[in-house]
Amino acid sequence: MIISARGLRKDFTVSRKVGRFRRERHVVSAVDGVDLTVERGELLGYIGPNGAGKSTTLKMLTGVLTPSAGEVTVCGLEPVAKRTTLARRIGVVFGQRSQLWWDLPLEDSFALLRHIYRVPEADHAARLKQCSDLLGLDEFRRTPVRQLSLGQRMRGELTAALLHGPEVLFLDEPTIGLDVLSKQAVRSFLGEVDRRGDTTVVLTTHDLADIEKLCRRLVVIDHGRVVHDGTLDELHARYRSRRTIVADLDSPWPEGLTLPGAVVTAVEADARRITLALDGMTAGEVVAALAQAVSLRDLSVQEPNIEDVVAKLYRDES
């Protein structure tokens, strides 16, 4: 167990203006009793709506914020008390902050980090080569960071966070604002980090495609509490997300027609396109029944949508 948090809380005191001079203070719990354990080598998706407490949790795990209550250890260390020791063993990327030296070429930042983290030259070179191959850094490693595009900079940030060979990598919205290609590059890179298995990754994101492609385990937090901890499939099962069949028909769908094991959820395009949600039967059985009932032109089977199920979860909790 490389990360362990029990009853983790963070309260902020907020003062609000009441009348002309008076201020009323009240306590807001950004994180309200989070229990979390992460095993070595896991890639954990940590998601939640804006203001749910994701970044606050991450700050407590990295030692830049003291918990109001609860116990937390990362790599066996108490983060705040051992922040500088822990810094050598973790890597952090905040999607909206930069840890690179703005005015210097990217490779100068990398060289500086080697000295700051006292990484042996051979290790540094090997890790840099690995990252460089996977992320295609060569074309812009001599460019000053201030001239990099967001996608290039994020590739640089990921590399910078990994050069000292951290045991845990914390990523706070690493794909925010990136174009499709950069997102894919970041995702396939993280997939590769995960496959190698020596780095534990905690990933917060609003892009659920990141989660779908990368994370076996998903922790959802809302109002400072964990509302789901498990696989994506378990989340779908909990909300009874169903696969759907979309069929284009030669003639309009006969009104009132029902099929066993499926529910009609939409009838569109002059009743020539129908959507059926599977309900207890396999896709094959439903398609066979459908083909007997009507004349089919085209057909597709769709997996349950992660956005929908997560939206349901967020709505339920609010």
């Binding site: 922040r83 500088t84 902050r97 930069s98």
Partner: peptide, 18 residues
Amino acid sequence: RTGDVVADLLRPVDPLWT
């Protein structure tokens, strides 16, 4: 002001000396 100072605190060296 921008919050980037968090990155300074997450280094294994004291920002004063850096």
